[in-house]
Protein backbone atom coordinates (compact mmCIF):
# COMPACT_ATOMS: atom_id res chain seq x y z
CA UNK A 1 0.00 0.00 0.00
CA UNK A 2 1.33 3.39 -0.89
CA UNK A 3 0.56 5.90 1.79
CA UNK A 4 -0.58 9.30 0.74
CA UNK A 5 1.92 11.90 1.74
CA UNK A 6 1.46 13.61 5.04
CA UNK A 7 3.36 16.79 5.43
CA UNK A 8 1.20 18.69 7.84
CA UNK A 9 2.09 18.75 11.51
CA UNK A 10 0.31 15.97 13.33
CA UNK A 11 -0.88 16.59 16.80
CA UNK A 12 -0.42 13.61 19.02
CA UNK A 13 -2.62 12.93 22.00
CA UNK A 14 -0.16 13.72 24.72
CA UNK A 15 -1.92 14.07 28.07
CA UNK A 16 -4.53 16.75 27.53
CA UNK A 17 -6.76 18.57 29.87
CA UNK A 18 -7.99 16.37 32.68
CA UNK A 19 -11.62 15.42 32.17
CA UNK A 20 -14.09 16.48 34.83
CA UNK A 21 -15.16 12.91 35.40
CA UNK A 22 -11.67 12.09 36.50
CA UNK A 23 -11.33 15.08 38.75
CA UNK A 24 -14.68 14.46 40.39
CA UNK A 25 -14.00 10.79 40.86
CA UNK A 26 -10.56 11.39 42.28
CA UNK A 27 -11.97 13.94 44.72
CA UNK A 28 -14.63 11.62 46.05
CA UNK A 29 -12.28 8.66 46.09
CA UNK A 30 -9.60 10.52 48.01
CA UNK A 31 -12.08 11.37 50.73
CA UNK A 32 -13.21 7.78 50.99
CA UNK A 33 -9.70 6.43 50.99
CA UNK A 34 -8.60 8.77 53.72
CA UNK A 35 -11.62 7.93 55.82
CA UNK A 36 -11.18 4.25 55.21
CA UNK A 37 -7.51 4.22 56.07
CA UNK A 38 -7.80 6.18 59.26
CA UNK A 39 -11.24 4.79 59.94
CA UNK A 40 -9.90 2.43 62.51
CA UNK A 41 -9.00 5.33 64.70
CA UNK A 42 -12.18 7.28 64.05
CA UNK A 43 -14.64 4.81 65.48
CA UNK A 44 -16.85 6.36 68.15
CA UNK A 45 -17.29 2.96 69.76
CA UNK A 46 -15.21 -0.19 69.88
CA UNK A 47 -16.35 -2.09 66.77
CA UNK A 48 -16.03 -5.46 68.47
CA UNK A 49 -17.68 -4.59 71.76
CA UNK A 50 -20.87 -6.53 72.42
CA UNK A 51 -23.66 -4.59 74.10
CA UNK A 52 -26.51 -7.02 74.13
CA UNK A 53 -28.88 -4.61 75.73
CA UNK A 54 -28.68 -2.25 72.78
CA UNK A 55 -29.13 -4.78 70.01
CA UNK A 56 -30.85 -3.92 66.76
CA UNK A 57 -31.44 -0.28 67.58
CA UNK A 58 -32.50 1.89 64.61
CA UNK A 59 -30.31 4.84 63.54
CA UNK A 60 -30.23 7.67 66.05
CA UNK A 61 -27.92 10.42 67.14
CA UNK A 62 -26.09 8.06 69.45
CA UNK A 63 -25.75 5.41 66.76
CA UNK A 64 -25.99 7.09 63.31
CA UNK A 65 -26.12 3.70 61.59
CA UNK A 66 -27.89 1.85 64.36
CA UNK A 67 -26.66 -1.31 66.05
CA UNK A 68 -26.50 -4.91 64.94
CA UNK A 69 -27.69 -8.12 66.56
CA UNK A 70 -24.86 -8.08 69.07
CA UNK A 71 -25.30 -4.42 69.94
CA UNK A 72 -22.20 -3.39 68.09
CA UNK A 73 -22.31 0.12 66.64
CA UNK A 74 -22.71 -0.26 62.89
CA UNK A 75 -20.97 3.00 62.07
CA UNK A 76 -17.89 1.95 63.96
CA UNK A 77 -17.90 -1.42 62.27
CA UNK A 78 -18.23 0.22 58.88
CA UNK A 79 -15.36 2.58 59.57
CA UNK A 80 -13.21 -0.24 60.83
CA UNK A 81 -13.87 -2.37 57.78
CA UNK A 82 -13.33 0.16 55.04
CA UNK A 83 -9.65 -0.45 54.63
CA UNK A 84 -10.29 -4.11 53.96
CA UNK A 85 -12.16 -3.45 50.73
CA UNK A 86 -9.46 -1.05 49.64
CA UNK A 87 -6.79 -3.57 50.50
CA UNK A 88 -8.49 -6.23 48.41
CA UNK A 89 -9.03 -3.88 45.50
CA UNK A 90 -5.58 -2.39 45.27
CA UNK A 91 -3.76 -5.46 46.50
CA UNK A 92 -5.31 -7.70 43.89
CA UNK A 93 -4.71 -5.11 41.19
CA UNK A 94 -1.04 -4.91 42.15
CA UNK A 95 -0.66 -8.69 42.06
CA UNK A 96 -2.22 -8.96 38.64
CA UNK A 97 -0.16 -6.00 37.42
CA UNK A 98 3.18 -7.20 38.75
CA UNK A 99 2.74 -10.75 37.53
CA UNK A 100 0.44 -10.40 34.55
CA UNK A 101 2.18 -7.57 32.71
CA UNK A 102 5.69 -9.09 32.70
CA UNK A 103 4.23 -12.42 31.63
CA UNK A 104 2.34 -10.82 28.79
CA UNK A 105 5.33 -8.81 27.61
CA UNK A 106 7.50 -11.90 27.85
CA UNK A 107 5.04 -13.78 25.68
CA UNK A 108 5.12 -10.95 23.14
CA UNK A 109 8.91 -10.93 22.99
CA UNK A 110 9.67 -14.60 22.95
CA UNK A 111 7.17 -15.95 20.52
CA UNK A 112 7.16 -19.66 20.20
CA UNK A 113 7.45 -22.05 23.08
CA UNK A 114 7.58 -19.49 25.87
CA UNK A 115 4.61 -17.68 24.47
CA UNK A 116 2.66 -20.88 24.02
CA UNK A 117 3.37 -22.00 27.57
CA UNK A 118 2.34 -18.68 29.06
CA UNK A 119 -0.75 -18.23 26.94
CA UNK A 120 -2.00 -21.77 27.49
CA UNK A 121 -1.70 -21.23 31.23
CA UNK A 122 -3.59 -17.99 30.85
CA UNK A 123 -6.28 -19.76 28.85
CA UNK A 124 -6.53 -22.33 31.59
CA UNK A 125 -7.04 -19.76 34.31
CA UNK A 126 -9.61 -17.96 32.21
CA UNK A 127 -11.63 -21.11 31.68
CA UNK A 128 -13.24 -20.66 35.07
CA UNK A 129 -15.20 -17.50 35.76
CA UNK A 130 -13.43 -15.37 38.40
CA UNK A 131 -15.92 -16.06 41.18
CA UNK A 132 -15.51 -19.78 40.75
CA UNK A 133 -11.76 -19.58 40.59
CA UNK A 134 -11.89 -17.68 43.84
CA UNK A 135 -14.22 -20.28 45.29
CA UNK A 136 -11.90 -23.07 44.31
CA UNK A 137 -8.83 -21.50 45.82
CA UNK A 138 -10.48 -20.34 49.01
CA UNK A 139 -12.48 -23.47 49.54
CA UNK A 140 -9.57 -25.67 50.40
CA UNK A 141 -7.78 -23.50 52.91
CA UNK A 142 -9.02 -21.46 55.86
CA UNK A 143 -9.88 -18.13 54.32
CA UNK A 144 -8.37 -14.84 55.39
CA UNK A 145 -7.82 -11.36 54.01
CA UNK A 146 -4.45 -12.20 52.53
CA UNK A 147 -5.69 -15.30 50.81
CA UNK A 148 -8.64 -13.39 49.38
CA UNK A 149 -6.31 -10.80 47.94
CA UNK A 150 -4.18 -13.51 46.39
CA UNK A 151 -7.18 -15.36 44.98
CA UNK A 152 -8.66 -12.27 43.38
CA UNK A 153 -5.26 -11.20 42.04
CA UNK A 154 -4.77 -14.63 40.55
CA UNK A 155 -8.13 -14.43 38.85
CA UNK A 156 -7.14 -11.23 37.08
CA UNK A 157 -3.61 -12.13 36.04
CA UNK A 158 -4.82 -13.62 32.74
CA UNK A 159 -6.60 -10.44 31.72
CA UNK A 160 -3.57 -8.25 32.23
CA UNK A 161 -1.34 -10.82 30.62
CA UNK A 162 -3.49 -10.91 27.52
CA UNK A 163 -3.69 -7.14 27.34
CA UNK A 164 0.02 -6.54 27.73
CA UNK A 165 0.79 -9.24 25.21
CA UNK A 166 -1.49 -7.56 22.68
CA UNK A 167 -0.01 -4.15 23.41
CA UNK A 168 3.50 -5.58 23.26
CA UNK A 169 2.90 -7.31 19.95
CA UNK A 170 1.50 -4.13 18.47
CA UNK A 171 4.48 -2.08 19.61
CA UNK A 172 7.02 -4.65 18.47
CA UNK A 173 5.78 -4.17 14.95
CA UNK A 174 6.43 -0.44 15.02
CA UNK A 175 9.36 0.81 12.99
CA UNK A 176 11.10 2.57 15.86
CA UNK A 177 11.30 -0.72 17.71
CA UNK A 178 12.66 -2.40 14.59
CA UNK A 179 15.26 0.35 14.48
CA UNK A 180 16.31 -0.66 17.99
CA UNK A 181 16.66 -4.27 16.85
CA UNK A 182 18.73 -3.01 13.95
CA UNK A 183 21.08 -1.51 16.52
CA UNK A 184 21.42 -4.94 18.05
CA UNK A 185 19.93 -3.78 21.32
CA UNK A 186 18.93 -6.40 23.83
CA UNK A 187 15.36 -7.24 24.77
CA UNK A 188 15.50 -5.59 28.18
CA UNK A 189 16.89 -2.35 26.80
CA UNK A 190 14.22 -2.25 24.11
CA UNK A 191 11.58 -3.00 26.70
CA UNK A 192 12.69 -0.21 28.94
CA UNK A 193 13.33 2.50 26.39
CA UNK A 194 10.91 1.80 23.59
CA UNK A 195 8.09 -0.44 24.71
CA UNK A 196 7.17 0.55 28.25
CA UNK A 197 6.99 4.32 27.69
CA UNK A 198 4.41 3.68 25.00
CA UNK A 199 2.63 0.79 26.63
CA UNK A 200 1.63 2.29 29.92
CA UNK A 201 -1.55 4.17 28.90
CA UNK A 202 -3.69 1.14 28.04
CA UNK A 203 -2.21 -0.81 30.94
CA UNK A 204 -2.93 1.93 33.46
CA UNK A 205 -6.48 2.23 32.17
CA UNK A 206 -7.02 -1.49 32.58
CA UNK A 207 -5.59 -1.40 36.08
CA UNK A 208 -8.04 1.31 37.00
CA UNK A 209 -10.89 -0.89 35.88
CA UNK A 210 -9.42 -3.88 37.67
CA UNK A 211 -9.66 -2.13 41.02
CA UNK A 212 -13.41 -1.80 40.61
CA UNK A 213 -13.87 -5.42 39.68
CA UNK A 214 -11.44 -6.61 42.35
CA UNK A 215 -13.40 -4.87 45.08
CA UNK A 216 -16.61 -6.33 43.65
CA UNK A 217 -15.21 -9.82 43.51
CA UNK A 218 -13.58 -9.58 46.92
CA UNK A 219 -16.73 -8.41 48.61
CA UNK A 220 -18.75 -11.10 46.83
CA UNK A 221 -16.37 -13.75 48.13
CA UNK A 222 -16.58 -12.27 51.60
CA UNK A 223 -20.32 -12.30 51.30
CA UNK A 224 -20.10 -16.02 50.67
CA UNK A 225 -17.98 -16.40 53.77
CA UNK A 226 -14.71 -16.85 51.98
CA UNK A 227 -13.05 -13.61 52.91
CA UNK A 228 -11.86 -12.18 56.20
CA UNK A 229 -13.60 -14.09 58.93
CA UNK A 230 -15.73 -12.75 61.79
CA UNK A 231 -15.34 -10.64 63.86
CA UNK A 232 -13.88 -8.72 60.92
CA UNK A 233 -16.17 -6.02 59.62
CA UNK A 234 -15.44 -6.39 55.96
CA UNK A 235 -18.42 -4.85 54.24
CA UNK A 236 -19.42 -7.86 52.18
CA UNK A 237 -19.33 -10.01 55.29
CA UNK A 238 -21.42 -7.46 57.17
CA UNK A 239 -24.06 -7.58 54.48
CA UNK A 240 -24.11 -11.36 54.63
CA UNK A 241 -24.47 -11.31 58.38
CA UNK A 242 -27.32 -8.83 58.14
CA UNK A 243 -29.53 -11.14 56.12
CA UNK A 244 -30.91 -12.90 59.13
CA UNK A 245 -32.44 -9.73 60.50
CA UNK A 246 -33.10 -8.02 57.23
CA UNK A 247 -36.78 -7.32 57.74
CA UNK A 248 -36.40 -6.26 61.35
CA UNK A 249 -33.29 -4.17 61.03
CA UNK A 250 -32.52 -3.31 57.43
CA UNK A 251 -30.00 -0.65 58.42
CA UNK A 252 -27.50 -3.30 59.46
CA UNK A 253 -27.16 -4.35 55.84
CA UNK A 254 -27.97 -1.07 54.15
CA UNK A 255 -25.19 0.90 55.82
CA UNK A 256 -22.25 -1.18 54.63
CA UNK A 257 -24.01 -1.73 51.33
CA UNK A 258 -24.36 1.96 50.64
CA UNK A 259 -20.79 2.66 51.64
CA UNK A 260 -19.56 -0.12 49.41
CA UNK A 261 -21.62 1.23 46.55
CA UNK A 262 -20.29 4.75 46.98
CA UNK A 263 -16.74 3.42 47.05
CA UNK A 264 -17.29 1.37 43.93
CA UNK A 265 -18.98 4.16 42.02
CA UNK A 266 -16.13 6.55 42.78
CA UNK A 267 -13.50 3.99 41.85
CA UNK A 268 -15.38 3.32 38.63
CA UNK A 269 -15.50 7.04 37.89
CA UNK A 270 -11.76 7.29 38.35
CA UNK A 271 -11.24 4.31 36.07
CA UNK A 272 -13.46 5.76 33.38
CA UNK A 273 -11.88 9.16 33.81
CA UNK A 274 -8.44 7.66 33.32
CA UNK A 275 -9.63 6.00 30.16
CA UNK A 276 -11.04 9.22 28.84
CA UNK A 277 -7.88 11.11 29.67
CA UNK A 278 -5.25 8.70 28.49
CA UNK A 279 -6.79 7.31 25.35
CA UNK A 280 -10.42 7.77 24.52
CA UNK A 281 -10.09 5.62 21.46
CA UNK A 282 -9.35 2.52 23.47
CA UNK A 283 -12.11 0.04 22.96
CA UNK A 284 -13.59 -0.93 26.24
CA UNK A 285 -12.85 -4.60 26.44
CA UNK A 286 -13.11 -4.78 30.16
CA UNK A 287 -13.72 -8.19 31.62
CA UNK A 288 -15.33 -8.43 34.97
Amino acid sequence: MIAVATNATMLIATPRRLPTVLLFGVAVLSVIVVVAVIGIWLTPYDPTAFAVRSRLLPPSTAHPFGTDEFGRDVLSRVLAGGHLSLAIGFGAMLISLLIGVPLGLLAAFHRGVTEAAIMRTVDLLISLPPVLLGLLILAVTPPSLGKTIIAVGLAYIPILARLSRAVGLGLLREDFVQAAFARGEGALVILWHEILPNAWPPIIVECGLRVTFAILLGSALSFLGLGPQPPSSEWGLMIAESREFLTQAPWVGLAPGLCLSVLLVSVNLVGEGLREWLDPQLTEHSHG
Binding site: T212, L216, S219, A220, F223, G236, I239, A240, S242, R243, L246, G253, L254, G257, L260, S261, L264, V265, V267, N268
Partner: peptide, 11 residues
Protein backbone atom coordinates in the same frame (compact mmCIF):
# COMPACT_ATOMS: atom_id res chain seq x y z
CA UNK B 1 -22.01 -1.71 37.09
CA UNK B 2 -20.56 -0.49 40.32
CA UNK B 3 -23.15 -1.63 42.82
CA UNK B 4 -22.58 -5.22 43.85
CA UNK B 5 -25.21 -7.73 42.82
CA UNK B 6 -25.66 -9.09 46.32
CA UNK B 7 -26.55 -5.63 47.50
CA UNK B 8 -29.10 -5.28 44.74
CA UNK B 9 -30.43 -8.61 45.88
CA UNK B 10 -30.78 -7.43 49.45
CA UNK B 11 -32.52 -4.26 48.31
Amino acid sequence: IAIPDFFWAIL
